[in-house]
C-alpha cells in the first residue's frame, strides 16, 4: 500500500512497522489542560492519539478543538467524527477545518445513540452514515470535490479510517462489512476491544482469505481491565462487547488490589499473541481514563521505542 498522505501513522504502517495508537477523551468542560495532561503520558509511546467525539453521547469538548490542541503540542491526532451530531454540511466543513490545522488522520463512525448520553431528549442527525462519511472524505481528498459537486480550494490530506466490531452480530456479515468499508474508502481499521481472541483471529483469517488485509491496515483494539467489576460491566452492559467467561474467572482469581496489574498483563499478552497474526498491522490501545498505563503496555508488548519516519 503506497503512502497517500502526510500522516505519520500511515507512513509507519506502510514501512512495515506495527502502528500504535491510543485515545484521549476530551473533558466534560472547557479546561484546556486536560488534553495536554492526558497526552503527556502517552505521546512518546504511540504514533497518533485518537480524540473521541462525544463518546457514549455524553457532551464534551469538541473533538476537533482537542485535536488542534494536540497538534499544537506536536502530537499527531486522529480526529474521530460521528454521524450522529452533524449533517453533511457540518461534516465537510469540519473536515476542511481539521485539514487546515494539519490534521491528517480521521476515523469515521456512526456514533453511539444519544439515548446513552446526557441529552436523551435530543434529536440525532444521521444525514449520512459512517460508510458514506468515508466516501465523503475520499471524494474530498482524491477528487477535490464537495458532495455538492463544487471544487475544493485545497484538498484535505486525510488518512481515512473506520471502526469495525468483529464481535457484533450477525457474525456472518462481519467480513463482508469490512469489505464494504474498504470499498467505501477505509485505509485503516481500528477494531472494538478484543477479549475473545479466537473469534478475532477467525475474523482476520476470513478477511485474509478475501485479500482484504492487503487493502487495509487492521489495528487491533485492546483495553486493559481495571477490575473484575469492569470486566463484568463490559460483558453485560456494553453493546457488541464479547468478554469470555475465562477472562472474568482469571480477573476474579486475583486479589482486588492486584486486579489492575492483572488487567495490564492480560492486555500485554493479547498484543503479543496478536502480533503473530498475519494481517494485523497495528494496535489501538484504549486505556479508558487510564492513560498513564499506556507506556507500560507499549513497553511490555515490545512496541517501544516507536519507529521514526520522515
Amino acid at each position: 500500500m503506497s503512502v497517500k498522505t502526510p500522516s505519520k501513522l500511515e507512513k509507519i504502517m506502510a514501512a512495515g512497522h506495527f502502528g500504535v495508537t491510543s485515545e484521549c477523551g476530551p473533558p466534560r468542560g472547557c479546561n484546556p489542560e486536560v488534553i495536554p495532561h492526558k497526552a503527556g503520558f502517552i505521546k512518546d509511546y504511540v504514533d497518533a492519539i485518537n480524540v473521541t467525539d462525544n463518546q457514549t453521547a455524553m457532551t464534551r469538548m469538541c473533538s476537533l478543538a482537542a485535536c488542534i490542541k494536540l497538534k499544537l503540542m506536536g502530537v499527531e491526532p486522529v480526529l474521530q467524527m460521528v454521524c450522529r451530531d452533524r449533517n453533511r454540511i457540518a461534516l465537510q466543513s469540519d473536515i476542511l477545518g481539521a485539514a487546515a490545522f494539519g490534521i491528517n488522520n480521521m476515523l469515521c463512525l456512526s456514533g453511539d445513540h444519544q439515548s446513552f448520553g446526557d441529552c436523551r431528549q435530543g434529536q440525532n442527525v444521521y444525514d449520512i452514515d459512517s460508510m458514506q462519511l468515508l466516501q465523503t472524505v475520499r471524494l474530498m481528498r482524491d477528487e477535490g470535490k464537495f458532495l455538492g459537486g463544487g471544487d475544493l480550494d485545497g484538498r484535505p490530506r486525510m488518512f481515512v479510517g473506520a471502526a469495525e466490531n468483529p464481535f457484533a452480530d450477525p457474525f456472518e456479515i462481519r467480513v463482508p462489512r469490512l469489505a464494504k468499508k474498504i470499498a467505501a474508502g477505509a485505509e485503516f481499521i481500528q477494531t472494538q476491544c478484543i477479549y475473545n481472541l479466537d473469534k478475532f483471529e477467525l475474523w482476520v483469517k476470513q478477511a485474509r482469505e478475501r485479500g482484504l488485509t492487503e487493502k487495509v491496515y487492521i489495528m487491533a483494539g485492546v483495553t486493559p481491565m481495571k477490575s473484575v467489576g469492569m470486566a463484568k460491566y463490559m460483558k453485560n452492559r456494553v453493546p457488541g462487547m464479547d468478554v469470555p467467561d475465562e477472562l472474568i474467572k482469571r480477573m476474579s482469581g486475583v486479589a482486588k488490589e492486584k486486579q489492575a496489574g492483572e488487567g495490564v498483563k492480560i492486555c500485554i499478552e493479547t498484543i503479543q499473541r496478536l502480533k503473530e497474526v498475519p494481517g494485523v498491522k497495528g494496535f489501538h490501545i484504549m486505556a479508558i481514563e487510564w492513560e498513564e498505563k499506556v507506556p507500560e503496555i507499549v513497553k511490555g508488548a515490545g512496541l517501544y521505542p516507536r519507529p521514526v519516519v520522515d
Binding site: S110, H113, N165, A168
Partner: peptide
C-alpha cells in the same frame, strides 16, 4: 434503525437486538 443507517448494522447490534434496547429488533 435507531440511526437510520443506509449501510448498517452499526457495532451495537447484539443478538439481533438494537443497542438502544433489548426489546427493539436490529
Amino acid at each position: 434503525c435507531a440511526k437510520r443507517l443506509m449501510n448498517g448494522p452499526c457495532g451495537g447490534s447484539t443478538n439481533g437486538k438494537c443497542e438502544i434496547s433489548k426489546e427493539t429488533d436490529c
